[in-house]
Amino acid sequence: MASKLVMNEAIKAAEVWLTGLDGERIGVVSRQEALDLAKELKADLVCDSLMSSPPPCRLVSRGAAKREKDQAGKEARQQEGQVKVKEIRLTANIEEHDYDTKRRQAEKLLDSGHGVLLVVRIQGKEGQAAKAMLEGLATDLKASGTRKTGIQLSGKQAALELIPK
């Protein structure tokens, strides 16, 4: 989880350990002096850690700190594994060509990082045929994804969720 970004006037320490725009070490300066320098250089004063005394702060070009934080947050969310799940609907008595099309579609989604929910509509006594088809699809898609759930038969549909490898 990304930590809260402490910038400019939100920094309450009397003194800060300052690093310049190009990474050069300026040293320990008063908070006000650091803020004045940031204003003069049209930059933001960003605190990296509030745990040490004086806290290490750096000058960052205006707006870059927020973009950096947003990017870090985006990467953290991606690593958490929040996978968007897309649904693909099929029927139990599907033609071979249509089956191949749905398999390629699922493969493409899995390769692009999306989860896939395969849903087979069931009419009458097609339960076992639907289950067998989902088993076959899961086997065909083994290279791109792994099962998140088992095959779930419920009323008028059978479902199987796959997540990308």
Rank of each mutant, 00 (worst) to 15 (best):
K39R: 12
L153I: 01
M1K: 04
V46F: 03
R147I: 02
D100K: 11
E80M: 15
L5N: 04
D70P: 00
K12R: 13
H97A: 13
C47T: 00
L45V: 01
A14R: 15
T149D: 10
L141M: 09
G113H: 06
R121H: 08
T149S: 15
A158S: 10
H97T: 08
V29Y: 07
K125Q: 06
Q128K: 08
K131R: 11
S3N: 13
K42Y: 11
R121K: 09
S49T: 10
D70R: 06
Q71P: 00
G81V: 01
M1R: 05
E126R: 00
T101V: 15
K84H: 09
K142Q: 13
L5C: 11
D111Q: 06
K84M: 11
R104G: 05
L118W: 01
C57E: 01
L59G: 04
L41V: 11
W17E: 15
C47H: 01
A43V: 13
G150W: 06
K39Y: 04
V83E: 10
M133E: 03
P164V: 01
A159H: 06
R31D: 11
A130H: 02
M133W: 07
R121I: 01
S3P: 12
G150P: 06
P56W: 03
T91C: 12
S112L: 09
G136W: 00
D98L: 13
A72N: 07
R25N: 14
E80I: 04
A38D: 06
G27L: 15
A65H: 02
Q82N: 15
A72T: 07
D98G: 04
A106Y: 04
I26K: 14
R62P: 00
Y99E: 03
E9S: 14
K74F: 11
A38H: 10
S112T: 09
L50A: 12
T91H: 12
A13T: 00
T101Q: 11
G155N: 12
S53K: 08
M133K: 05
Q82M: 14
R67V: 09
A138Y: 03
A138N: 08
D98Y: 08
V119G: 01
A65V: 06
